[in-house]
Design a protein around this nucleic acid. Structure first.
Lengths: 192, 192
DNA sequence: TTCGCCTGAGAACGAGCGTTCTCCGGTGCT
DNA sequence: AGCACCGGAGAACGCTCGTTCTCAGGCGAA
């Protein structure tokens, strides 16, 4: 038999793919079982309820997001480049053919009203991201008001890319970010 | 008996309130009946299925959004003021205590994968808004690349305000918009 | 008044869901 | 080998939902 850790990962991976592409409520636990190849009994042994599974999926999405951002920032030398790397990361993500928007926003829209835990995880992820941006802005020596502005661009790019199916939202966000950064640093920004 | 038009409005109003606050799938048709005070039979006479009702609700949201934006722009004299009025409109909206994010984004996250009609209406609304912003940008004589940037800010503000519960997102978006507009016009923007 | 007709209230139906239970075959220990 | 346990397959259960059907009551026309 596969060990517990592997089973957990298989279930979360399968659930993530199904939830993300079809919506959480539209996916039954039996579909997760089929996709994961793990028996229903085992799944309920690992995750006491579907809600717990949803939370586990969102937690893994948080980690993936964080490492994705970190990886994208690796080649960047200055804080400014690291900030812009966020939008490069988004650009690559938007171009994946299974892209269907930010899982946190989607989950919040679907379950945020009925599940406090889901709302909490989504809020947490957004707060973490805001903190990350804020730390880079501080490192850059720019006024702290720049941070929420850049975060707004990243959020907007995600929903625009999802709904309008316009992957170039990342590029627009990136150039807007450049302008805002330049302005915050007192440089004369190059008009887009 | 109440006439058809009134019944339609009562049903859509009730459904909108319930769908928006609790999520669409979490609200049964019987709850709509109770809230609207219109019999189930009548509802199904007016809207052949729940999907049709959802679409009707989203259509009315579109109208409300458009008139809200237009009203907010009424006092504005220049295209620039009209653009900024969008964010003032958002600010007022975010502060309503029943605010729970953009209904189109929420609906898309919940049903966009399973209902093509819902996805279509959401996409349409976003496209209309983009066109509105683009027309103002053109009127302003700014490069057209400014339009998607401003739209991005508005979208981001909505999701941020919803998930983080941070109504000041509108203010952040507004000042970012001012900077982007100034830069696009070749003026030296005032750092936030 | 009497007869249709229409409407509202709500029961009914069929499907799908989350969750639990049953049963059976295999596995490891003695 | 014999036995106790464990996990998988999937049936079962209780519930909710979208949608339809039934039925009784009220209203207008003759």
């Amino acid at each position: 038999m596969i060990d517990e850790q592997t089973a957990r990962e298989q279930v979360v991976t399968a659930a993530d793919r199904l939830f993300y592409t079809r919506g959480i409520q539209a996916v039954g636990m039996d579909a997760v079982r089929a996709e994961a190849g793990v028996s229903l009994k085992r799944i309920y042994g690992l995750f006491p309820s579907k809600d717990d599974l949803v939370i586990a999926v969102l937690h893994r999405r948080t980690e993936q997001w964080n490492t994705g951002i970190a990886t994208s920032a690796e080649g960047a030398k200055t804080p400014e480049e690291k900030l812009l790397a966020v939008f490069d990361f988004l650009s690559g993500w938007f171009r994946q053919d299974d892209f269907r928007g930010c899982a946190f926003i989607n989950s919040y829209g679907e379950l945020g009203a009925s599940s406090a835990a889901v709302a909490q995880v989504a809020r947490q992820q957004k707060a973490d991201f805001q903190r990350y941006v804020a730390s880079l802005v501080e490192e850059l020596g720019a006024p702290s008001s720049l941070a929420p502005q850049l975060a707004l661009l990243a959020e907007g790019a995600q929903t625009t890319a999802a709904i309008s199916g316009d992957a170039s939202a990342a590029a627009h966000a990136r150039s807007a970010a450049q302008i805002l950064i330049a302005a915050a640093l007192g440089r004369v920004p190059a008009a887009a």
